[in-house]
Design a protein around this nucleic acid. Structure first.
Lengths: 248, 248
DNA sequence: ACAAAAGTGTTTTTTATACACCCATGC
DNA sequence: GCATGGGTGTATAAAAAACACTTTTGT
């Protein structure tokens, strides 16, 4: 607690010492494997201490001149190639001693973590294996013990994903431009579980809302009647924006 | 971008330089003046540069060994005396150049702001005037231009308050232990506006949910039939916790 | 007596839920 | 022809919304 670097606190003479921080950004990146009905999260095998050889959420430290959000995009771009994604800030963890580096090599520097939550399209997301660090989509149901407080962070992100899905159109940022209603239904059931509505009622409600446009184009997936491809109409959705509307 | 303090980055040799941060905590503190049907926010007149003599949200810089949440509580305690309050983290703003101090006196240090959102009981909250800095409850409808990006922050907090109210029992953390249904109704209308339900339906729905306990005690406020005092039963509310239930 | 506030009930409309059933295709 | 997935409709139950009405107090 001894005062070092006194020149930095010209504006707070005689004040208690301020903490110095490095700021990390950790991403909870979800994707949905509709084929296998699994919700996945992107994990990275750590190549350095602390927590060497533990799975962790992909993270980075914020660089000079870099915004938090840019740092989040940077780390995402380092791990996967993807065109469509949804990203928003999740939560900031910043208690002292949450990072072991604080106690060893740090000279009193604190580590704060701003977490971001992302949703990407599974089919299009291409993992970037650099040949050194492990990287993998893990089913959320059976993620192992993670580094730092990342299990807690993942749980928080998972909850946020469920909430988002219920009152905002995130799904359409991540589905292909055209999709069948069954694609959409699978997407929802995978994330929310199967306890929200049967397919027929799901259809009826969603179509009545009027922001899904039937292109008339039909696709056939194996046996069965061909399905119509729909488009999300962002303008038609506007009236529902930020309303406490649960469209499921 | 020149390298100073190289000893701090032992774990990232040959890596781009990391940003050094001071971390601020800013509070959006709301209260509800039910008597006058006004939603209020606590503002502080700044006594120092930057933004000298501008109104701002109460904030502080995080000290060594202090958690973010503790910093939020500290600043709150410096400004008001209050027993019951609700507090949660709001958002973290951290782009470069959002704080003018970064460009002048800072030697490259960045300022990041973690904001907290609080709700306190107006009738019990006692403002602490230190005789130096101005402090006041401002109706949210007519806050002036604030320092930094605080207007944006306030708008964000206001939205969060509205959402919180709709699906969580924050109201009861801030109302007196015993309250009339009309107190509760006033509270909701003040924050949400008058477009959610008339008093009679509000009553019926809320009572049917079964987590309001009628104490039988009557209280008379001027003319009119005396009202029953109710208590919030936290146990009875549990089944509704985290459900996407809108009880208004 | 009557205005004011509290509290109850009733009617209508809308939405949720559970299914039964028809349609178009591959094999 | 029949299994398979796509799509429509209907009957019932529940909830939301509007509003009329009764009760109990102060003046």
């Amino acid at each position: 607690m001894a005062g070092r670097n006194p020149k930095k606190i010209t504006y707070s003479l005689n004040q208690p010492l301020l903490a110095d921080f490095k700021v990390g950004v950790d991403n909870v990146i979800f994707s949905v494997d509709t084929a296998q009905n699994r919700l996945l999260v992107l994990l990275i095998m750590r190549q350095q201490e602390p927590f060497l050889n533990h799975w962790s959420l992909p993270g980075t430290l914020v660089r000079q001149g870099e915004s938090l959000e840019n740092a989040a995009y940077r780390i995402l771009a380092e791990k996967i190639r993807v065109k469509n994604l949804y990203l928003e800030q999740l939560y900031t963890f910043g208690g002292p001693h949450r990072d072991p580096r604080e106690d060893s090599e740090s000279y009193g520097v604190r580590y704060l973590s701003v977490s971001y939550f992302a949703l990407v399209r599974f089919e299009e997301a291409e993992l970037i294996a650099d040949g050194v660090s492990g990287i993998a989509w893990y089913p959320v149901k059976d993620v192992p013990q993670l580094a730092f407080d990342h299990n807690q962070l993942l749980a928080y992100g998972h909850q946020r994903l469920r909430n988002k899905l219920e009152y905002s159109p995130v799904a359409f940022e991540v589905l292909p431009e055209m999709f069948t209603l069954n694609d959409l239904y699978q997407f929802y059931t995978t994330i929310l579980g199967e306890n929200f509505a049967d397919y027929s009622n799901f259809r009826a409600r969603l179509l009545k809302l009027g922001f899904l446009f039937d292109t008339g184009i039909k696709v056939s997936r194996g046996a069965g009647r061909p399905a119509s491809l729909y488009k999300f109409d962002a303008d038609a959705f506007l009236p529902f924006k930020d309303k406490p509307l649960l469209f499921i």
